[in-house]
Computed example of a mutant assay.
Amino acid sequence: MANSPSGDSVTDRIVRVLETFTPTRTVQTAAEIGRRAGLPSSTAHRVVGDLVDAGLLDRDGEGRLSVGLRLWELATRSSHALRVRQAAMPAMERVQARVREHTQLAILEQDEALFLERLSDSQAGANVTRIAGRLPLHATSSGLVLLAFADSEVQERVLARPLRPMTAQTPTDAGVVRRKLAEVRALGHVIAKGYIDEVSTGVAVPVRDRASGATAALSVVLPRDAATGLALEELHRAAREIEAALV
């Protein structure tokens, strides 16, 4: 129900407030939240106050705000994403112990790759991924796997949009991406050299579901010129273990 002059609902305003928090912006003032959410100051302070009272936001001694533990608690109850992460962790740890770079788990969420977990070695190379962070589907190894096994409707929607280059190697032509997706389906994996970061190579495989789609993508990020054979072998083995655990 719309109940503001601008026509947005209470739910709209709450969502806009919560979306101002990101993996790199975890603490804000009410004024900063209002500005980023596009809300009048009085509205922002009222919404923030209600969320603090409900335990969905926390306020520290200096008045700064962060996401509250109650929001995390509610989000993880009966969460499909949490179940996938829990099922994947033993296999991911085995991959990480062998490859010793970055091992990641992602799911398809609102036409982006949402990363549920990342395990990293202290000596591992560059990696832009963050837990609970999102990356574009066409520019990441995990994203290409998720897109390759997604419904045709999702594929068409993503490919109809401008595909932003992250590096000079990022595929941005829809025809090129379509051919890459067909290759991923045929091979059962993808190797993306320099797509998201010039110095890195992403290697990913699908965690398949019963409907021939992908529940998740399991990936390893390697230095750009590193051999990929061991990573692929370990990822395929781990994906089968995760699929069995999710049955």
Rank of each mutant, 00 (worst) to 15 (best):
Leu159Gly: 06
Arg161Pro: 08
Ala97Ser: 12
Glu73Trp: 01
Asn3Met: 13
Ala217Asn: 06
Asp53Gln: 13
Lys193Phe: 00
Ala186Ile: 01
Thr170Pro: 09
Thr22Ile: 05
Ser42Gly: 00
Thr22His: 10
Ala160Met: 08
Leu105Gly: 02
Leu235Ile: 12
Thr103Gly: 07
Leu235Glu: 11
His102Leu: 01
Ala113Leu: 00
Ala231Arg: 14
Glu234Leu: 02
Glu32Pro: 03
Leu146Cys: 04
Thr11Ile: 14
Ala192Phe: 07
Pro206His: 00
Val220Ala: 10
Gln96Arg: 03
Asp151Arg: 15
His189Glu: 07
Arg94Ser: 10
Ala132Arg: 15
Tyr195Trp: 15
Gly61Ala: 08
Leu230Ala: 07
Gly34Ser: 05
Thr172Val: 11
Ala150Val: 11
Ala217Gly: 08
Val177Pro: 02
Glu234Lys: 10
Ala91Cys: 10
Ala211Asp: 13
Pro90Tyr: 04
Arg237Ser: 11
Val158Gln: 08
Leu137Gln: 01
Arg118Asn: 15
Ser79Pro: 06
Ser122Glu: 11
Leu18Glu: 00
Gln104Tyr: 09
Leu57Phe: 00
Thr215Trp: 00
Ala2Pro: 09
Val207Arg: 05
Val158Leu: 09
Ala211Arg: 15
Ala126Gln: 10
Thr228Phe: 01
Val247Arg: 14
Ala245Pro: 11
Ala88Val: 00
Pro40Thr: 03
Ala75Gly: 15
Leu187Gly: 06
Thr24Gly: 02
Pro171Ile: 02
Thr170Ile: 01
Ala91Gln: 09
Arg164Trp: 14
Ala30Met: 04
Ala87Tyr: 08
Ala204Gly: 06
Thr22Pro: 00
Gly213His: 12
Ala31Ser: 03
Ala124Phe: 06
Val199Met: 05
Phe21Asp: 01
Glu183Cys: 06
Arg13Gly: 10
Ala31Asp: 14
Thr129Ser: 14
Arg16Glu: 09
Leu108Gln: 13
Gly68Asp: 01
Leu39His: 11
Asp197Ile: 04
Pro206Ala: 00
Arg178Gly: 10
His189Tyr: 14
Leu159Val: 06
Arg77Lys: 09
Phe115Tyr: 12
Glu153Thr: 14
Ser122Lys: 09
Ala106Ile: 11
Leu105Ser: 00
Ser42Tyr: 01
Leu74Gln: 12
Ala113Trp: 03
Gln123Leu: 13
Thr29Arg: 04
Ala226Val: 03
Leu39Tyr: 13
Ala160Arg: 11
Met92Ser: 00
Asn127Met: 03
Val67Asp: 10
Ala238Pro: 10
Arg100Cys: 07
Leu137Ala: 05
Ala139Leu: 04
Val205Trp: 06
Arg208Glu: 11
His45Met: 01
Thr172Ser: 13
Gln155Lys: 07
Phe149Tyr: 15
Ala2Thr: 14
Leu246Glu: 06
Arg70Gly: 06
Ser122Asp: 15
Ile191Val: 15
Ala106Lys: 02
Val184Tyr: 00
Ala182Pro: 07
Glu241Ala: 11
Asp12Arg: 08
Pro90Phe: 03
Leu144Gln: 15
Leu246Tyr: 09
Gln169Glu: 11
Ala226Trp: 02
Pro90Thr: 05
His138Ile: 07
Val84Asn: 03
Val199Cys: 02
Val221Lys: 05
